[in-house]
Amino acid sequence: MTPITTTAELAAFCDQLKGQPFVAVDTEFMRETTYWPKLCLIQAAAPSAEAVIDPLAEGIDLEPFLAVLRDEAIPKVFHAARQDVEIFNNLKAMPRPLFDTQVAGMAAGFGEQIAYDALVRQMLKIEIDKSSRFTDWARRPLTDAQLSYALADVTHLAELFPMLRGRLEKEGRLAWVTDEMVNLTDPANYDVDPENAWRRLKPRRHTAKYLAVFRAVAAWRERTAQMRDQPRGRILKDEAIDEIATQTPADADALDRLRSVPKGFSGSRFGPDLLTAVREALKDPEAYAPVIEKAKGPSFPAAGAVVELLKVLLKARAEDAGVASKLIATVADLEQIANDDNAKTPALTGWRREAFGEDALKLKRGELALVLDGSRVRVVEVRRAPKAKAAAQ
């Protein structure tokens, strides 16, 4: 098998993709030692065309394929697409419209986060050869076996897509997946602005001083990781950001006394810049601190019990519908519903409200009950006796 290694070959292949009903896409990349993912291979398959593209080939320009990804007339099919979408978003080619077969599998009753090989096994009755699974995709040349393994990721995907889409259309659940794809292709999910890096973490306090330093250190780490093209964790661990924000070290000695900061960190090339970031944040913490809402825990004594009941209801309704419960609601959604009937949560909007949210509110009002029927939980309506009329005076 010969991969595409020139811009002319790529342009000719992309001409074949124009007018296709869809194109299945996958990537192979490396990022264990880098901040930015290193794109090593692109696989693409449509009903009448398929190819492996070598992004590392000298002089190749990926623009013809990126234009296909941007073409909203051609649906793009991925499996577990988030990291692939991140790569193409970095290349200014957000793939829309997108269909993620892992999310579709959740809606079709194949469980939560079903693996690609498991979905192929269950739907196509094919066992994927995994012998090339741990290939170093950055090494050249790649063998025919490695290229065939990579291409199979999209040839099987091209077979799965019509089957899954048809199944969801028949069950009236295609819109469920479409809703998820809107979120998956939201560029905000892939924001790499250092000033927003704190959002990926979990601040443990809410004072202005803590939050200002927390944001500043997270931004410093993000900028440093990007400039050096190193993983964030190699620059500074997440727990160190929290400890620095809590202790606010003002000098090298104070920084070195922190348990989560590597020994001798203050004397490294990073130490002085980090301390400068802390000092800058402390000049006006009220102005620099991000404004965040405190996470709402149970706000009344029975709220914890309500959340547990909602978990059982969610599991029951997911089993009834043959859907992965994670697709319908998260524990955070349940906590919000337990505290507020009008909570701004996806579980109380659209198809999720119909599948679960409305019943969740009924359960809170005592209009539904959970009954154990053997090994299965049933949801039953509660018939309330009419209130007795007051005796005539």
Rank of each mutant, 00 (worst) to 15 (best):
P3G: 10
T5P: 06
T7R: 09
A11S: 14
A12G: 02
L17W: 03
K18Q: 10
F22A: 08
V25N: 08
D26A: 06
T27N: 05
T27V: 11
M30G: 05
L39P: 14
Q43Y: 04
P55W: 06
L62W: 04
F65H: 03
D71T: 02
V77M: 02
A80C: 11
R82S: 15
Q83H: 03
D84A: 00
I87P: 09
F88W: 07
P95H: 12
Q102G: 06
V103Y: 15
A104N: 10
A104S: 13
G105P: 14
G109V: 08
I114H: 11
D117K: 14
Q122T: 07
M123P: 10
S131N: 06
L151E: 09
F161T: 09
P162F: 11
G172W: 13
L174E: 14
L174W: 12
T178K: 15
V182N: 13
D191M: 09
A212G: 03
R215S: 06
D229E: 02
R232V: 01
I241H: 07
A250L: 15
A254E: 15
L255A: 08
R259P: 09
V261W: 05
G264F: 09
S268V: 01
L274I: 03
A281I: 00
E286W: 00
V291I: 07
E293V: 00
A295N: 01
F300G: 04
V307R: 01
E308M: 12
L310G: 10
K311F: 03
L327M: 04
A332D: 13
I337S: 01
I337A: 01
R365N: 13
G366V: 07
G366R: 02
L368H: 04
S375L: 11
R378I: 07
R384C: 14
A392E: 15
